Amino acid sequence: MPQRILFVCLGNICRSPAAEGVMRAMAEGRDPGLVLDSCGTGGWHVGDAPYGPMQASAGRRGYDLSDLRARQFTAGDFARFDLILCMDSANLRDVEAHRPAGADTPVRLFTDFAPERGAEAVPDPYYTRDFDGALDLIEACAEGLLRS
């Protein structure tokens, strides 16, 4: 499994920090060399903690997101990470638009790791308000990633 993984969503306050937090918890004791981070393609929330309702939903499942802070994706992330996982196809397109010449870091959808769920994207709970549904899918994807 890649050792440096970046999770990407739109604003880095719901899906990608949740993916980072879930993966961090699931990987604890299983893959000690794993480095995880998250970011957003947009810069609206840089420096902000994850969205309160997402933190609350994650907290009810035992995931602590309180130490995470939003940051914006940069082209330099291609050099810093072995794998970049996007929450939806728009995020993937935005990330690929920043790919420097010669960068070969794979960029994939996070849902590729839970094909049995039949989801093409992790729906954005900031808009859907379904924080628990997003976490269900994120957990399935994280488990699939750990198995891969």
Rank of each mutant, 00 (worst) to 15 (best):
G42F: 07
R24C: 04
D82G: 09
A103D: 14
A119H: 15
G21P: 13
A121M: 15
D112T: 06
D31W: 12
C141Q: 15
P32A: 05
D37Y: 04
L6D: 15
A25F: 01
G43V: 07
N12V: 08
G118Q: 14
Y63K: 08
L85T: 01
D94G: 10
R60W: 00
R69L: 05
E116A: 12
R15C: 07
R4S: 14
V46C: 12
H98L: 11
F131V: 03
L109A: 03
A75K: 06
V8S: 11
L146M: 15
V107T: 06
R4C: 09
I13M: 13
A79P: 08
I5T: 02
L85E: 00
F7I: 03
D132P: 01
A134F: 02
R60I: 03
T41A: 13
M26T: 04
F131Q: 04
G33N: 12
R80G: 03
F110P: 05
D64L: 08
A121V: 07
L34M: 09
D67L: 06
E120T: 14
D130V: 11
L68M: 14
I5N: 00
T74L: 13
D37G: 13
T111S: 12
G62F: 00
Y63N: 01
D124P: 08
G52S: 04
L92V: 09
Q3N: 14
P2Q: 09
C9W: 15
T128G: 03
C39Y: 01
H98T: 04
G43Y: 09
G144F: 10
V8H: 13
C14N: 07
L83P: 03
P2L: 10
A97H: 14
D104E: 14
A25D: 02
G43K: 09
G40L: 06
Y127K: 02
E143Q: 15
T74I: 03
C9I: 14
R80W: 13
G144N: 08
D67T: 09
L6Y: 07
G21Y: 11
R60K: 10
M1C: 07
I5H: 00
G42R: 10
Y51R: 05
F81Y: 15
C14Q: 05
G43R: 11
V35P: 01
T128L: 01
M23I: 02
V35L: 05
A103S: 13
L137V: 10
N91L: 15
F73N: 00
Y127N: 02
R80N: 10
G76A: 11
V46T: 08
Q55A: 06
C14D: 09
A58M: 08
L92E: 10
F73D: 00
F73R: 01
R24V: 01
D124H: 10
D112A: 15
D64N: 13
A49G: 10
M23W: 12
M54L: 02
H98A: 06
G102F: 14
M1V: 12
N12L: 11
A142D: 03
V95N: 07
A114R: 05
D88G: 04
L83M: 03
A19F: 03
R61H: 01
G102R: 02
S89G: 15
L6V: 15
G144C: 14
S57P: 06
D112H: 11
M23H: 06
R147H: 15
D136E: 04
R15Y: 10
S38G: 04
Q3C: 07
M54F: 01
H45C: 02
A58K: 07
M87L: 11
Y51E: 06
V22W: 08
D31F: 02
D132R: 13
F73V: 05
G11S: 11
A19H: 08
P123G: 14
E139N: 06
F113R: 06
